[in-house]
Design a binder for these strands. Structure first.
Length: 297
DNA sequence: AGTGGGACCTGTCCGC
DNA sequence: TGCGGACAGGTCCCAC
C-alpha cells in the first residue's frame, strides 16, 4: 500500500486515537519484522504517553513522552487498524474492523486514549517488509534511516530548480532518479508513474537531461515538480490508494486507485484527451513502469 | 560514486 | 481442483 500519500493517510487516521494516549501495554507477537524489534520494545513504551504523530517520507513517527521516538515503516504490505469499544456491542468487546488475517497481527498497542477510553491499534503485515524501532529523539536525524533521506516532496524545497540541481549529471533513467529516496524521499512506484505521465515525460529519459540549459528542459523540471506535488496532494485528498485489501486505519477504503492514469493500466487507452496512445509496461530496476509511449517523451 | 539486480516474505492471480 | 510461475505499494546489500 504505502507510498507517501498512504502513510500520510494512515497518520491522519491514527492521530485522533494515538496522540495523547497512554500506552498501557504492547503485544509483540514475534521477535522481528524486517528487522528484529529493539531491546525491551514493549517495556520502553508501556506506561508512557504518545505526544505527537508525524511523518517523514514513508516513515511514521510517534514521539513518546519518555524521549524516544517510535519509528514505524509499513514496507509493502503493512497496515494499521483501530479497535474501539463499539456502541451497542458488549462492553469491553473490541469488534471494530476485525482482522482478515489475524496471524499477521504482529503488534498490538493497548491504549487509554486522551478521552480516557480504551482502544487498540493493531499492526498487520503479511510480508513483514515493515519494521518498528525506538530511537532517542535527539539522535533521530543522524540515524541511518534518516540521515541520507532526500527532500520532502510536499515541503517547500521541491521546485524545478531543486530538481534540476538534484538530477544534474545523472545518467540514470528519470524513473530511477525519482524513486531514489536520497534525492526525493517518499515517492514510490505508483506516484512516479503518475507524475511522469502528467508531465508528459518518458520514464526512460536520462535524468540529467532535465537539468541543462534554461529553456525547455528547465520548464519541464518546473512542470515535473508541480505535477509531483499535485499527484501526491490529489492522492491524499482521495484517502490514498487501496490496492488489494488495504484499508485506512478506520477500515474505510481510499479511492485514488480509480484515478490512476497509467499505473496497472497496460494495454488500455491513454487518458490524455488529445492522445490516442496505449499504456505500455516495461521493467526498470526490476520494477514495473507504466507509461504512454506516445505522449511521454 | 552511481547503478542495476537480487534478496527479503506471503498472498493472489493466471494459465495449464 | 491443483500446481507452478509471475507479480505486488519498499529498501538493503552487493556486485559491477
Amino acid at each position: 500500500m504505502p507510498e507517501l500519500p498512504e502513510v500520510e493517510t494512515v497518520k491522519r487516521g491514527l492521530a485522533p486515537t494515538f496522540e495523547g494516549a497512554k500506552i498501557s501495554s504492547v503485544d509483540q507477537n514475534r521477535p522481528d519484522l524486517r528487522f528484529p524489534f529493539p531491546e525491551n520494545f514493549s517495556k520502553r513504551l508501556s506506561g508512557h504517553r504518545v505526544t505527537t504523530l508525524s511523518r517523514r517520507s514513508k516513515y511514521l513517527l510517534a514521539d513518546i513522552d519518555s524521549g524516544d521516538v517510535l519509528i514505524m515503516h509499513l514496507g509493502m504490505s503493512g497496515s494499521f487498524r483501530i479497535e474501539n469499544d463499539v456502541l451497542g456491542e458488549t462492553p469491553g468487546e473490541f469488534s471494530h474492523a476485525r482482522s482478515k488475517n489475524p496471524k499477521h497481527d504482529h503488534v498490538v498497542f493497548h491504549l487509554q486514549t486522551q478521552e480516557n477510553t480504551p482502544a487498540r491499534i493493531v499492526y498487520n503485515d503479511p510480508r513483514r517488509f515493515g519494521f518498528m524501532d525506538l530511537i532517542a529523539r535527539p539522535k533521530l536525524s543522524d540515524h541511518a534511516y534518516f540521515k541520507d533521506l532526500g527532500l520532502e516532496p510536499l515541503g517547500n524545497d521541491l521546485s524545478g530548480e531543486t530538481l534540476a540541481q538534484l538530477f544534474a549529471g545523472r545518467k540514470s533513467p528519470l524513473k530511477a532518479a525519482l524513486l531514489n529516496q536520497k534525492l526525493i524521499a517518499g515517492l514510490g512506484n505508483i506516484y512516479v508513474c503518475e507524475a511522469l505521465w502528467r508531465t508528459g515525460l518518458s520514464p526512460k529519459r536520462v535524468a540529467g537531461s532535465l537539468a541543462t540549459g534554461t529553456g525547455k528542459p528547465k520548464q519541464k523540471a518546473n512542470e515535473l515538480a508541480a505535477h509531483i506535488r499535485s499527484t501526491l496532494e490529489d492522492a491524499i485528498k482521495a484517502g490514498g490508494s487501496s490496492l488489494k485489501d488495504h484499508t485506512q486505519a478506520d477500515g474505510s477504503l481510499g479511492y485514488f486507485q480509480h484515478s490512476f492514469a497509467v499505473y496497472d493500466r497496460e494495454g488500455e487507452a491513454c487518458r490524455k484527451p488529445e492522445c490516442s496512445g496505449t499504456v505500455s509496461r516495461l521493467v526498470q530496476s526490476n520494477r514495473s513502469t507504466f507509461y504512454c509511449p506516445r505522449c511521454q517523451t
